[in-house]
């Protein structure tokens, strides 16, 4: 039984190690690419808005509170119309993926930690 138990554990640990590696690798790739995508899209959007002088609309915040209160929705609506929506959707999508990966890693951190610890101990025992 002892021998068979060892064989079962060998199979399980190898499978788990492989799965963990693939999982990490995929998560890192998705994390980095979504971050890069977010960064590039953000930069493009910023440059576009700068070129359109859309940021000038925000200068009205320096006015009196009453003026800001009165024209806030008008200004906001104009600003919203000037933003390229297509880019904005992709920007939020990449941000969403980026945050999801972070949340997933935080949520499963203890599981990852325990698994790595267990796999490491098992491999040490085999030597």
């Amino acid at each position: 039984m002892k021998n068979l138990e060892k064989k079962i554990f060998k199979k399980i640990y190898f499978w788990e190690a492989r799965r963990l590696t693939v999982d990490f690798f995929l998560k890192i790739i998705v994390f980095l690419s979504s971050f890069l995508f977010f960064f590039i899209l953000g930069e493009i959007l910023f440059e576009l808005l700068k070129e359109q002088r859309s940021f000038d609309l925000l200068s009205f915040f320096q006015e009196d509170f009453e003026v800001v209160k009165k024209y806030f929705f008008d200004n906001f609506f104009i600003f919203w119309l000037e933003i390229p929506k297509f880019l904005l959707v992709f920007l939020f999508l990449s941000l969403g993926i980026f945050l999801t990966i972070i949340l997933l890693v935080i949520k499963n951190l203890t599981i990852y930690k325990n698994k790595i610890k267990n796999i490491y101990r098992w491999f040490l025992k085999q030597k």
């Binding site: 039984m1 068979l4 138990e5 079962i8 554990f9 399980i12 640990y13 788990e16 203890t110 599981i111 990852y112 930690k113 325990n114 698994k115 610890k117 267990n118 796999i119 101990r121 098992w122």
Partner: peptide
């Protein structure tokens, strides 16, 4: 086991083997 402590699988193997 679900929390990542794979070594606990030994209990199940011993119990049902």
């Amino acid at each position: 086991i679900k929390s990542g402590e794979i070594n606990y699988f030994e209990f199940l193997i011993k119990k049902y083997f």
